[in-house]
Amino acid sequence: MSPASRLRCATSPNPRRGAVVVRMEAVPLLSYMRTYIEGKLPYSYPPGPFTPGTNGIGRVAAIGEGVVAFRVGQRVAVNPYWLANEAVREPAQVLIGLTGVSADSAPMLAEFPHGTLRELAEFPASTLIALDGLDSLTSERLAVLGKFAVPFGGLRRGRLAAGETVVVNGATGYFGSAAMLAALAMGASRVVALGRHFEPLQALVELGRGRVVPVVLSGDAGQDVEAIRTAAGGGADLAFDMVGNAEDANATLATLRSLRRAGRLVLMGSMLVDLPIPYRQMLQNNWELIGHFMYTPADYLALVALVASRQLPLEAVELKPYPFAALEAAIDEAGRMQGLQCTVACTESAEAWD
């Protein structure tokens, strides 16, 4: 079944207890959506028929028993990261509309197999974020929240404080570019943006208004460490690694070695090789290495608050909207996304078609 035909398979607005049916209005697309729907990724797909689609913006169409915080007609963000609400040390977890995460996640995938690329989609109430007070922003513009949620969760896990210097490895990527803007919104005094080419870094510098310093990585470990530390004014307080599918660890190790004493490095990328940790340097410098996956509900609420206060400019992201009827073309466009771009499948609106 094609993605477009899946969209028409709408569920009836009769949610189960603890669940909410959402009428979808805007859905951001993953860059690898085409590969995903062709079944070419080593993911845990739902066991039966399902609809893909992770994040999204929509309006509540129906509410199941036991749901108290939402109302019909309310605009909400759909958060695909669902953890089982059970008092155990390691609750099962999935990304709804994408993959299982933990080894015991199959029952969760079967319970809520459908993602956001449906006209009407049912989700656990715990995965929704209220968007009250954001009426001035269109749903397709708010769909950009999905681009920020992941790196924002990592920066919060890294305890980024106002006035600190941050290094972002993979700054020109889909999530890395969002991490740079999020760090500025959270009060970073300086963001060092790392990349392989100068031109895409320059676009980030212009957005930073004097607070973003670019470093073009050379591949020479010693040279790169020195360049990063110089750009950071002697060393960074926090480093954020969002490198995608890296086949060597040099850039990540250079990022680590650019830290000041007691600095922190958050790993959220998808490196394809092992990371050889310099044991003695870690010890002598009191460095902290943090592996982090996704974000918490509190992170998402804080992200929405930053947007509502206009501290995080969603309009800095170049929006590429497509009507749901042109979903196949939208998926192809998503595969070409770079940096601060976001491809969104959406219903017709003023922003989309001006």
Results as ranks from 00 to 15, higher is better:
L204R: 07
Y279E: 03
V273K: 14
I290K: 01
F240G: 00
P278S: 07
A262H: 15
V205L: 08
L238N: 03
A251I: 04
E288K: 08
M242K: 04
E288V: 11
M282I: 03
L265E: 06
R260K: 14
M242V: 09
F240V: 06
M268S: 01
N286V: 06
A227Y: 04
R261E: 12
M268I: 12
T255F: 08
R280D: 05
Q223H: 12
E206H: 15
L204G: 03
V266H: 00
D274S: 09
G210P: 12
N250D: 12
L259Y: 00
V216I: 14
D224L: 13
G235I: 02
R209N: 01
R211S: 03
M271T: 12
A249V: 08
L259R: 01
T230G: 09
L207N: 01
G210Y: 15
G244N: 13
A246G: 07
V205E: 02
Y279M: 10
G210F: 10
R257V: 13
V273R: 11
L283M: 12
A203E: 11
D224S: 11
L283E: 09
L204W: 03
L259W: 01
D248F: 11
L253H: 05
N250H: 13
D224N: 10
L217N: 03
D224Q: 09
N250C: 09
S218T: 15
L267A: 03
A231L: 07
V216C: 09
A232K: 03
M271I: 11
T255C: 07
D220L: 03
L289V: 15
L272Q: 15
F240Y: 08
G269V: 02
D248C: 07
G208E: 00
R264S: 07
R264Y: 06
Y279W: 05
A246V: 08
G235A: 04
A227D: 05
G263V: 15
V213L: 02
T230I: 05
D237S: 08
A249I: 06
A262G: 13
A254V: 06
L253A: 02
D248M: 04
E288N: 10
V213F: 00
L283R: 10
L256R: 03
G235P: 01
L272M: 15
V273S: 09
L272E: 12
A236D: 04
Q281P: 08
A221D: 03
